[in-house]
Amino acid sequence: MAVISDDDKIICRCEEVSLGTIKDIVHHFHCSSREVKLRTRAGMGYCGGRICRTIIEKVVQDINNEKVSNESQLSYRPPIRPVTFGQLGGSGNDDES
């Protein structure tokens, strides 16, 4: 029976970035999770990376043989929930994204 390859499974749901893509980028550029994010958009989707960031960091750290550091590489940036221009203007209306 054929062995299913896992490289096409999605890691970042928002941007549909696969495990294979992340692995390739890390191997090719020997880079950090921050750079992976900039090169692939993994972690930059609608959810702000809330769902995929821990896995991305883990995959990158595993490949690079690093230990988890205290300060996370994929920092959060405001707004942590998508907002409309109206809200940024502080008009206090009811829609939420």
């Binding site: 499974k9 749901r13 769902i51 995929c52 821990t54 896995i55």
Partner: peptide, 10 residues
């Protein structure tokens, strides 16, 4: 909740 990315999980 931490994810476990399983093939087909979307």
């Amino acid at each position: 909740e931490s994810p476990i990315p399983v093939k087909g999980w979307t």
